[in-house]
Design a protein around this nucleic acid. Structure first.
Lengths: 190, 190
DNA sequence: TGATTGATTGACTAATCAATCAATAGAGGT
DNA sequence: ACCTCTATTGATTGATTAGTCAATCAATCA
């Protein structure tokens, strides 16, 4: 029962945060959506902060698993890069709701030590994956630089997607990133 | 006195928001920093929401004026692009505080109609400036595409700067964007 | 001087919400 | 039947905070 309720509460928190576009969600709202009382949320998570952080961890873990499974199937370095890009824009759904939740967590990282720490781990892992794949294609120094700009571009495109009211397909977003990678690699190799 | 107090309150709100890394600032905190009572803030702005939005407008207006003056001095299209990039990363200060405030406003745009509208105006203007400068260098269709990816890259780099605890110089950030622009232009012209 | 007006505040209200707690219910074991 | 542990909740508390209001203060003007 414990795990079941925790999962339900995390899912409800995700929905509520995304729907309201803010971390100003009450425990009662989350619990209500999960079909339980607010007191139960406290029982299982200790406090609101822990529930929010658990939700964040869930999102990060989910992305991580998508990334790992994508990378496993990539045959060569360039395909690994594509896997990372597609993973970044294919996380569960490319839904406005999920993207909103991410942006909200980014904002939280400004004021929460733990949230910042969690995001840093995600960023480091993304960066390390990019660098690793790039090293097979360009000199090490360039790999680091290209990884950095690519990661920033991913975040930027993601951010703009969050603010865009209408949902769109990930394909156009992916194309932007892919082109950037291609241009950078070609520029170095030329 | 009216204008003086309003300016002081907006400045205080900016500081408070940036320092706490969140829009969860109380009217009392802002007013206290401005050296007045909370009641006065209500007197001048009507409500908390209006004060926050006025602060947002201030930030946007400030950026806009920096951009305009930078563009006026640019002798050719490529210099105009550089002016836009430098303006984006030279807004008043490249301070962690200011960047934090921007990210916080981005998050607010998810839940506030007016905030979203304000940000959209800023984005549209930035985009239009980029497209206009690019049209002199590449075909129209490419100009639109490059403007889009450049704007996203600017936002992405800015975002990462916000989360980075340590402050850094804008030069490295500017270099990333400039390189992206150069690569894109060269790829089209080739 | 006396009146008017704007600036300013302290005190108050009403609402919200996280967190706590005591109490109930049910399952499983003895 | 009795105990024990977990799940669950309604009620309550304590803290926070936006917004209001009546009262004061200061300057300007008639």
């Amino acid at each position: 029962m414990s795990e079941l309720r925790k999962r339900a509460l995390i899912g409800a928190a995700l929905c509520e945060i995304a729907e309201r576009g803010s971390l100003d969600v009450t425990v009662a709202q989350i619990a209500g959506r999960a079909g339980v009382s607010a007191a139960l949320a406290h029982h299982y998570f200790g406090g609101k902060e822990d529930l929010i952080l658990a939700t964040m961890r869930h999102l990060l873990a989910e992305f991580s698993s998508v990334l790992v499974s994508g990378l496993r199937e990539a045959p060569d370095p360039r395909a690994r890069l594509t896997a990372i890009v597609r993973g970044s824009f294919g996380r569960e759904q490319f839904h406005h709701a999920t993207i909103s939740a991410w942006l909200t967590f980014y904002a939280k990282a400004l004021s929460s030590e733990v949230a910042a720490w969690l995001l840093e781990i995600y960023q480091r892992r993304l960066n390390s994956n990019l660098v690793h794949a790039l090293r097979a294609l360009v000199p090490g120094k360039d790999a680091v630089r290209i990884a950095e700009s690519t990661a920033a571009l991913i975040d930027g495109v993601y951010l703009r997607e969050a603010l865009k009211g209408v949902p769109s397909t990930p394909e156009s977003a992916i194309a932007v990133i892919e082109r950037h990678i291609d241009l950078e690699i070609r520029a170095v190799q030329a």
